[in-house]
Each structure stands twice: as structure tokens, then as C-alpha cells.
């Protein structure tokens, strides 16, 4: 999984932020490319550029190996993301891609996924319990 971060700051500001702050939070600094989106050109493409504030809001897009968006989440600036839920979603989408089996609510790696068939219609309750 590759991470790309993106804000309206220049790549020069990214460098200073990495060197002066992030490297003190994460040993060696963050390992992923920090993209510069001055003017919000990319943010507009993804519908996350706030024209009034002149910044990109907290949008997160999970893009599969074919370049298709599989998940997206957009938050207003004051609330940070939950990394654990992102990882769960990535693993679930990878599971679906590999097996073709959809994952029920709250699915975790190693838990049961479903095998859709005419027989499963109306019978999910027999093969899957909430929290299973």
C-alpha cells in the first residue's frame, strides 16, 4: 500500500515541516511522498478543496491497482483520521479482490466473508452473526 499526502503547501514547506516537526514525531520522518497542491488544483478534482478557506479539507481516497476509487472519507479539519479503520478497509478490499467474497459489517482479517449464491438470499442470518 502506497500513501500520498497532499496539501496546498509547496514542496519547500513540506521539506521544512518534515525536517523540523514530523521527524520528531516519526523516526526518520514520514516515508511517503508529500504532494504540493498550490491553488488546490488536485483538491478541486477530488471535490475536497474549500474555496473559502483556500485549503483542502481532510479527504481520504482508497484507490485500487486499476486506478479505481474503492472508498472515500471526508472530514472537516478539526477531527483527525482513524488509521486502524483505514487499514481494516484496505485489508477488506484486498480480500474481496482476491477471493470475490464480500465482507460483512465490522469484518476483520481472518473472519468469515460471504459466498453469494441464490441459496444465500434470506439466509445470511444462518451463516453469519453480528460481530462474528
Amino acid at each position: 500500500m502506497e500513501v500520498l499526502s497532499c496539501s496546498v503547501d509547496s514542496q519547500y514547506t513540506h521539506k521544512i515541516w518534515q525536517e523540523h516537526e514530523l521527524s520528531k514525531m516519526v523516526s526518520g520522518g514520514v516515508p511517503y511522498p508529500m504532494l504540493s497542491d498550490t491553488g488546490g488544483r488536485i483538491g478541486r478534482l477530488y471535490g475536497v478543496y474549500d474555496e473559502k478557506g483556500g485549503v483542502n479539507v481532510r479527504g481520504r481516497f482508497l484507490i485500487d491497482p486499476d486506478g479505481v476509487i474503492q472508498a472515500m472519507e471526508v472530514l472537516t479539519p478539526p477531527v483527525g483520521r482513524n488509521f486502524a479503520e483505514l487499514v481494516r478497509q484496505v485489508k477488506a478490499f484486498q480480500h474481496v479482490r482476491e477471493t470475490g467474497e464480500p465482507t460483512p459489517a465490522g469484518w476483520q482479517p481472518g473472519k468469515k466473508s460471504l459466498k453469494p449464491s441464490p441459496d444465500l438470499v434470506g439466509n445470511v442470518w444462518k451463516v453469519w452473526k453480528i460481530g462474528e
Binding site: C6, V57, R58, G59, F61, L62, D64
Partner: peptide, 9 residues
């Protein structure tokens, strides 16, 4: 797989 994350600044 790519996670593209936007943030304010």
C-alpha cells in the same frame, strides 16, 4: 493500492 490523503496544511 494507493491511499491519497488531503489535509488542510
Amino acid at each position: 493500492w494507493v491511499v491519497l490523503c488531503f489535509y488542510p496544511g
